[in-house]
Amino acid sequence: MKKIILIAVAFTLLLSACGAPAAEMVSITQNGIEISQAWVRAASMKSEMGAETMPAHGAVSGAFMLIKNSNAEADLLLKASSDAAEMVQIHETTMQAGVMSMAEVPGITIPTGSAVELKPGSYHIMLIGLKRELKQGETISINLSFQNAGDIGFEIPAQMP
């Protein structure tokens, strides 16, 4: 019986490992805010993609992560910045009657003792006007400003779209 349980546990671990997006995932904790499972979508520059002209703002990408707050008070993600893009915004994607809308939001509340996931179809950090191609495996630096926890800077890996 013990053996069976062990095998089941190993199998579950294996399955969950398969489901995890990729290897070198960062995890950083600062002032009670933990950021983990961060990744940015790999993207090419428009000029490298056969576009004859560079339309306004060039290419875009999105960054996704899990933000956990272990402080006694809720915190607010106010601002994001990165030297990889001309402009960085906090966006939320919403779905209404099958129609997808995306809009900038003033911030994201991270409730006390819980985590908010920035993921496709929900919140993301929007990188507008990429300054360089984001190749899979490369990293970009990003800085998040929280109302209470202050600035948290870290590197996140680019993954295939």
């Binding site: 979508r41 875009v60 990408s61 999105g62 996704f64 997808m100 995306m102 179809g121």
Partner: peptide, 13 residues
């Protein structure tokens, strides 16, 4: 549209 960072690439992927 290609300036869509999450839903469009997630669908195509």
């Amino acid at each position: 549209y290609t300036s869509c960072p999450d839903v469009c690439p997630t669908t195509l992927a």
